[in-house]
Design a protein around this nucleic acid. Structure first.
Length: 286
DNA sequence: CTAGGATCCTGTCAGC
DNA sequence: TGCTGACAGGATCCTA
């Protein structure tokens, strides 16, 4: 689940709790969730590269965390969860640790829980200097904010026969988009997800890139699927998607722009939401 | 090289 | 109730 906005929200939120504090203990409950040797040291910086969160420790080691589909990070202190982000589920408020807890990083005054239902996510330790060569980081493209429209357009030509949605999900084309924001960006840009990447004009490609920025900025502003939901007194998670999603998970509901029923289709093996009127596959005469 | 599908894993939900 | 298959906010590997 967690896409760029969720990871950014975690980066900003978690910093207040762990910056300057020392990791003193690592408990691993699932071998495949932790790659490399445990590290100890003081947290120097929290960074983000695409959907990867990076924790730099003061002895030149770093922890790279990728939440993939179902990862969550929860900071707990004095027996109470104070911050949670990542995959939104009822586990935000469950007992800790629970059966989905894969790793616990112990600090002097609290613990950072890495929960992950499907075990696709991981924490990986490596020397800070080797991060740039790490496989995932190395192939990562720039984020929409850093990329010129011409460069994006050129990349679309290289994958001209693929569906535009599949292409913008490719982290080596543009970093940060996942299934939700890809659908939202294409809707805002008025581009059908099945359009061949090579069929987009420069103007259309520019619009997609621009909307990717706007959609993710909007999500960061409402805090992704994180603490706001978690701290609600009744313990429910709320539906943060309602705050900004216009097509995602809205199949059968009216389009917010034209009232046409939102359809759900399959593109590149992923559930995809589209307004058949605002996002036309075939060109029509205006 | 590209494009598409299978795959990693656990859990939930719809339909019988 | 119990079973089955489909599906899930990601990315990589394998095949053609």
């Amino acid at each position: 689940m967690p896409e760029l906005p969720e990871v950014e929200t975690i980066r900003r939120g978690l910093g207040g709790f762990i910056l300057g504090k020392k990791i003193i203990k690592t408990q691993i409950f699932c071998e495949k969730s932790f790659i490399g040797e445990p590290v100890s040291g003081k947290v120097k910086e929290l960074r983000r590269k695409g959907k990867a969160l990076i924790i730099d420790v003061d002895n030149d080691w770093s922890l790279m965390i990728h939440l993939r589909m179902t990862g969550q990070l929860i900071w707990r202190s004095s027996g109470k969860a104070e911050f949670a982000g990542g995959h939104p589920s009822e586990n935000f408020v469950a007992e800790l640790p629970n059966k989905q807890t894969r790793v616990i990083l112990g600090f002097g005054d609290g613990q950072l829980y890495f929960n992950d239902q499907r075990k696709f996510g991981f924490i990986k330790t490596l020397k800070t200097g080797e991060l740039a060569e790490e496989k995932f980081i190395k192939k990562l493209a720039q984020e929409p904010w850093e990329m010129e429209a011409e460069e994006f357009f050129a990349k679309l030509q290289k994958k001209k026969n693929s569906a535009i949605k599949a292409v913008i999900l490719d982290q080596s084309v543009v970093a940060g988009l996942g299934n939700i924001y890809a659908d939202e960006a294409l809707f805002e840009a008025g581009i059908h997800p099945l359009r061949k990447a090579g069929s987009l004009s420069l103007e259309e490609a520019t619009r997609v890139l621009e909307m990717a920025k706007i959609v993710m900025e909007r999500a960061i502003k409402v805090g992704g699927s994180t603490i706001q939901n978690y701290v609600k007194a009744d313990g429910t998670r709320g539906n943060y998607l309602d705050l900004f999603a216009k097509v995602y998970h809205r199949e059968g509901k009216p389009c917010v722009k034209c009232g046409t029923e939102i359809k759900k289709i399959k593109v590149a093996g992923r559930g995809t939401h589209v307004c058949p009127n605002c996002q036309k596959l075939e060109k029509t005469n205006d």
